[in-house]
């Protein structure tokens, strides 16, 4: 009797995915609030935003965009791999995704350190001497890319756990909704960047 009860596990993958999507909508509203602040101040200070954006390196932003888009590809492919029962390929693809995430953060680290070294950081005397629009631009730049980078770090942790779950068999060919949820989170991080990139890097 107990074995029969144990084998009858109730699972609702559609419900699990829907829960994940609902969570992603709260994330959309979280970033959405910041995008509204950005929109209003860019509307009020269009020239100063353009001037401030010249400090950003379009090449670094483009490279990071390509890194994130490719990492989205590898995480999506890892789901196809697990659906086909290719456990090691799936783990390898997630591993590549995590390496891409690291590369993104390393780029971000150098970008931020360069800004800080030339005196552009919140409350720096250099920045406070600039016109209000430029102060706002860099404030938003640090908050929005910072919050995004935090999401990248969380995504890396989630994907690392997915890798362990595949290794231990908790995620397998029949049951992989946990990996799907991790993938959905990662794609959201990608979509946020798809908007951050043109709004901060491509306006000068």
């Amino acid at each position: 009797m107990t074995t029969a009860a144990a084998t009858h596990t109730h699972r609702d993958d559609v419900g699990s995915r829907m829960g994940m999507w609902l969570f992603l909508f709260t994330e959309l509203i979280l970033f959405g609030g910041l995008f509204i602040v950005y929109a209003v101040y860019r509307f009020k200070f269009p020239e100063q935003f353009q001037l401030a954006a010249r400090e950003l390196d379009t090449l670094v932003g483009t490279v990071n965009t390509i890194i994130l888009l490719t990492s989205s590809l590898t995480v999506a492919m890892s789901i196809t791999a697990i659906q086909q029962g290719k456990k090691h390929l799936s783990m390898m693809l997630i591993g590549i995704t995590i390496i891409f995430a690291l590369a993104f953060l390393v780029n971000k680290y150098f970008e931020w350190s360069h800004k800080i070294s030339i005196g552009i950081y919140p409350q720096s005397p250099e920045l406070l001497n600039k016109p209000p629009g430029e102060i706002l631009y860099f404030g938003l730049y640090y908050v929005m890319t910072g919050l995004h980078a935090l999401h990248v770090i969380i995504g890396m942790v989630v994907l690392a756990f997915s890798m362990v779950f595949i290794a231990t068999g908790k995620i397998n060919q029949q049951s992989y909704v946990k990996l799907e949820a991790g993938g959905l989170y990662w794609h959201l991080v990608d979509i946020i960047w798809i908007f951050l990139f043109p709004l901060f890097y491509l306006i000068s």
Binding site: V14, Q174, E180
Partner: peptide
């Protein structure tokens, strides 16, 4: 006993 997968597999 498990719910049916309606999950699409993409190449």
């Amino acid at each position: 006993p498990e719910e049916q997968h309606t999950q699409h597999s993409i190449s």
